[in-house]
Write a protein that binds this DNA or RNA. Structure first.
Lengths: 340, 340
DNA sequence: TTGTAAGCGTTATCAT
DNA sequence: ATGATAACGCTTACAA
């Protein structure tokens, strides 16, 4: 039962080292020169007392808690999981900490969380909107914190934006199918409330139309980006097969659901139907057949988001909007169409 | 270009409402009775000024920032992803915030992060050790913060522990195979540096031995819990087949890798080899055939961890150690052995 | 280079 | 029930 001695404060260190507290502060922050001998005395005192600066107190005074907040609609969505992982890496490598929040796709909660972050004086906020109807950004335009909207954004704002060229993603998917000879093609889109789904859809359908193979309106399906919704869509997709020979799901998880459903129904992929996903996450490699997909540069997305925050903070440059490019990844789930 | 008026402080509210700052504080905290009329005045002032209490300042004085820290070795490991998701839910529902950290399986980094958390005055720490060699807990025993060690723990500590009965998990897997008539059985374990892998292994092999079908030492493989390591293990597993008719992987991700590898090699699961995983995460349902597995109660784990933290803080009870039970989930990847 | 002292925006402790 | 005032532990002018 050892005594739990009270943790040392900067005052204790100053006393022990025989200097003032400001000197101790200077030694720690390294911003202002301090005599070598004095430094040594202070460091010794710090070691002896096992002193660790209180980050809350420091944050109160300096108005920077060295932390960045990240908000995502659903932690368990593999795209956001990957994003979290990468953002975490970057944030840490710059000496900041990550505050993670799940908005659970709830606009009300989203606002609460943002409010909370602001009141915690985070040095920056990176977030993906719940839906196009979110008014969350309005809370943020009046606040003096760098904010980067990511992935799911709204155009009508002054906040910084970092988005994929979703229209291009649709084009890439369509072109891949066309190049394989498919002409009757369906799409399993995400919730139309989320603007990027519409963008992807448009890029996809317009490319098909230009090629002379417009989508049949009956072959536009909807899911909610979950595995289950992909699985549930199988039934509708089956009614369209074999007229339809190719389906693009707007994320890998739904594509995986579709794959599973088709497998159960005894439909061969890619022999009878070609399936394509989007995101290029681990799940695309795990399933059998592995998924051809449209890759998003998640790592780059994360890196740039953090950089945008930090640059704004240091009043370097302020980037308004960055558009990232998707990329085609061909695996096993797509193949040349077979007649008959 | 609208003026960005300085955010209101508690002082401004007090002045506007014509009361003292302590009264404002009382109205907000609701801990101490305040006259109804006064309350109204204060609330009005708060609304008019759009006042929001500064959480940092409040935290400094009260020594509670209303946040809980969570440390995991790898965010992108689906088990930890699920854990994060559930812990987040619980933490939020109790009015706390989540600080998430990835230790990247690095003991040095692990210590830094823990130190950081303590200095941020988090109200509790939930964490899973990097390895049995971590000395991280030593930093924490001297500190006055509730700590729950989860999943990967060390016994030699006074910190609270919340673990699965990993031995039992091994037994369950072995019994399932035995009940299907398998007698030559292999195991793809996680890193032996992580104690729970050894526990699982022991429960598994001892059960087989008791049944008169001891494991052949050559049939104990190792991976690192990643999909890739499962895939990489295929080669070694193939050399053991067809003598070996069943393999238990110590997590679903490695099992998925194995499934993928065997599929490529043209080996049928479960017709030629039965495969079993552990965790029971989404990945077990996504792959084909879907994985029979030993389920961990992740949600319960998360809930209890948060409860243990909160109860300790409120000086209610202090639970030393909680042991959770694994559960068998049968899907498609295991089947009765076929002679010939 | 170093010390003194004034905050940062709360909550907690006394009085009243 | 309310108010004045002292912390909380640090950073940061401003002096010396």
């Amino acid at each position: 039962m050892e005594a739990r001695r009270k943790v040392a404060s900067i005052r204790d260190v100053a006393k022990r080292a025989g200097v003032s507290i400001s000197t101790v502060s200077r030694v720690i922050s390294k911003k202002i020169p301090v005599d070598a001998k004095t430094q040594e005395k202070v460091r010794d005192a710090i070691d002896e007392l096992e002193y660790r600066p209180d980050l809350i107190a420091s944050g109160l005074r300096s108005k920077s808690g060295k932390s960045i907040g990240l908000l995502v609609p659903r932690i368990s969505d593999p795209f956001f999981t990957a994003l979290i992982d990468h953002v975490d890496r970057c944030v840490i490598s710059h000496g900041y900490n990550l505050l993670l929040f799940n908005t659970h796709s709830d606009p009300v909660f989203e606002e609460q969380v943002l409010d909370n972050l602001v009141r915690r004086h985070v040095d920056g906020i990176i977030f993906s909107l719940v839906s196009d109807e979110s008014r969350a950004m309005e809370l943020l335009t009046e606040v003096d914190v760098p904010v980067v909207m990511l992935d799911r954004v709204r155009e009508d704002t002054k906040l910084m934006q970092l988005v994929l060229d979703n229209r291009k993603a649709g084009e890439i998917a369509a072109e891949h199918f066309l190049s394989l000879g498919h002409t009757s093609i369906a799409c399993l889109a995400g919730p139309p409330k989320i603007r990027l789904c519409v963008e992807r859809q448009l890029g996809f359908s317009e490319t098909l139309k230009r090629a002379g193979h417009p989508m049949d309106g009956r072959h536009a399906f909807n899911g909610d980006f979950s595995f289950e919704s992909g699985l549930a869509a199988t039934e509708r997709v089956l009614r369209a097969v074999p007229a339809v020979t190719a389906v693009w799901a707007q994320n890998d998880l739904m594509a995986a659901g579709l794959l599973k459903g088709l497998g159960r129904a005894g439909v061969k992929v890619p022999e009878q139907v070609s399936i394509m996903g989007m995101d290029d996450l681990l799940v695309a490699e795990i399933v059998s057949p592995s998924l051809s997909t449209v890759a998003q540069p998640v790592a780059e997305m994360a890196r740039r988001a953090v950089e945008m925050i930090l640059k704004t903070k240091d009043k370097m440059t302020i980037t308004r909007k960055v558009l990232l490019k998707p990329r085609l990844v061909v695996r096993e789930s797509t193949a040349k169409i077979r007649k008959g």
